[in-house]
Design a protein around this nucleic acid. Structure first.
Lengths: 307, 307
DNA sequence: TAAAATTAGTTGCTTTTGTCAACTACTTTG
DNA sequence: CAAAGTAGTTGACAAAAGCAACTAATTTTA
């Protein structure tokens, strides 16, 4: 018995009860949930055929036909025979159909309002974020590209969170200890000491207001720049986030007229190598090191920007 | 039109469709959702009356009566007239009733399994965490004490996250800039440099595997200890988390035979003052400072541990 | 390009699901 | 101990949903 699935089942039972959809009359109206769903589907798509509705809502066409007939009689919808296919007709809501739906929407909103009124605004945010996460994970069965937000102004909490990601991800992927996190903390402190908003930049990729990937460009002497802290939460790999971050970083270097960008890494951290190479970085130095009881290579990659 | 409620409505619609409970036959069995819910309710409570079932599931007693009659005929349940009330009878599942339910449970688990099979384990964790959050916020209408987990071993990512919390919370509550976060980074780096697992400790309170509060004790010369980084996410205040953290910290000091614990704060940070005082700390120093364009007091609080 | 197969939608008929009210047998209340 | 209330049953009925046969239009196929 898998605990994950049983936890999900438990949530499903909870939410079934919470949704309150097992009662016949939706929101005490004279319409059933099915009828409202039909109306909602019609309103969503501006103009729709009965066939399409049966597909979306999984309804019997005979059953739907009769409901639509009633809607027509009650002047909630109007049907216009399709010009492309004379068997089918395009269905739209009439004004009074829209009105009915809007009244029901208000009722529904009020009901939800009542259920969350005791939550403060940050709890409400947590609620909505969590719902989004549940939805995204269950629909696409993976996080979708469109939900990723990119930004590059540093706001309070960002640096700490990026340090956290370094500790957590390298801890999980390469078994690095908290010593590594301490090292990262040091690098960030040094960075902040000489941070120049003009010539340095950190890019962050966010999902549900949580940073899931980042990269930074730090100016160096001689019109050089260093690329640092390139990191992507494993859950969010394969969505083009890494590529986007690197592209933005390199574009920034071009814009700032840096002549060369370099990055330092070790042979222990191999996950990002392919991405560096695809962005045009080439290995320029490699030195064997023995540290933390391990033997590995400290490597330098460079990207010349000739323009 | 409130965006929060409309987002929740959108999630509700999504989840209604996702649950797939609008179809007549539950999991392709010959039973309807209502019937299965009845069986489930009987199995949950070992022995239950029909009356109780109508209350829980909001069913008509006549309707239920007939369904139970059929269950009896199909040998899924057994009824024993109650000794306390000869009108009522106690209903239990028979072996074959239990068997049916367990087959359906398996089917349901398989179905869920199919829906999440493409998720990796960390995505599954995110999913379950988010469901818990949704549920907690909607049921209790607030986070409950029992869901808070306490620990004090530092794992990779913890320090970064605590820095993040400092930046984010002080940014929000006192409008502190990223300079403050930089300062926090420095203090943590210094701490890690001389960290002694024997005499120093950081306590963390977690909700859904996320740190929401912390406090630390750092050893100092002359059998003194400093209390630092006491912080609680505003959303999680009023649940006794702060008190628990402070108590644990002070108990640790007693155990380690520190003679005095002190903490440094400023008059700008006033949210935790009451908690310090309740834990027995007393103001021992106060000095006016002008910094960051503000005038405020740097204060020291002490707690003597006489034992 | 004409016959065959398919599709959008309607209608008749049926089953399933759920509601309401009257009733029995028992229990509680005043 | 009579009146009121409750657990459960039953009859009558209405609403919700499914199935299959049908029409009229469209698409495929040979």
């Amino acid at each position: 018995m898998n605990t994950i699935t049983s936890k999900i089942r438990s949530f499903n039972r909870f939410y079934t009860a919470h949704l309150d959809i097992l009662s016949q009359h939706y929101l005490d109206s004279e319409y059933s949930l099915t009828e409202i769903r039909i109306l909602y589907e019609i309103s969503e798509s501006n103009s729709i055929t009965a066939q399409k509705i049966t597909e979306i809502l999984n309804l019997d066409k005979g059953y739907l036909s009769r409901i639509l007939k009633r809607f027509l009689k009650e002047n909630l919808i109007e049907k216009v025979t399709s010009t492309e296919d004379k068997r089918a007709s395009n269905i739209k809501l009439t004004n009074s159909g829209n009105e009915l739906l809007s009244i029901l929407n208000d009722k529904s909103e009020n009901k939800i309002e009542g259920k969350i009124e005791k939550l403060n605004s940050s709890e409400k945010e947590i609620l909505v974020d969590s719902m989004n996460t549940v939805r995204n994970l269950l629909t696409e069965n993976k996080i979708v590209r469109e939900d990723i937000v990119y930004r590059h102004e540093i706001t309070p909490g960002d640096i700490g969170y990026i340090i956290h990601l370094h500790g957590a991800i390298y801890g999980k992927e390469y078994n690095f200890s908290t010593d590594f996190e301490k090292y990262v903390i040091k690098t960030f402190y040094d960075f902040l000491e000489k941070y120049s908003p003009e010539n340095d930049r950190i890019w962050m990729a966010e999902y549900n207001n949580k940073i899931v990937g980042c990269v930074a460009i730090i100016h160096q002497p001689n019109q050089e720049a260093q690329l640092r802290w390139f990191l992507l939460d494993p859950t969010f790999r394969g969505l083009g986030i890494g590529k986007k971050l690197l592209t933005d970083a390199v574009d920034f270097c071009k814009e700032k007229k840096f002549k060369n960008v370099f990055l330092l890494t070790t042979s222990l951290q191999n996950k990002a190598l392919e991405m560096y190479k695809m962005a045009g970085f080439e290995l320029t130095q490699s030195e064997e090191v023995k540290e933390w009881g391990k033997t590995f290579y400290e490597e330098r990659y460079d990207l010349k920007l000739s323009n």
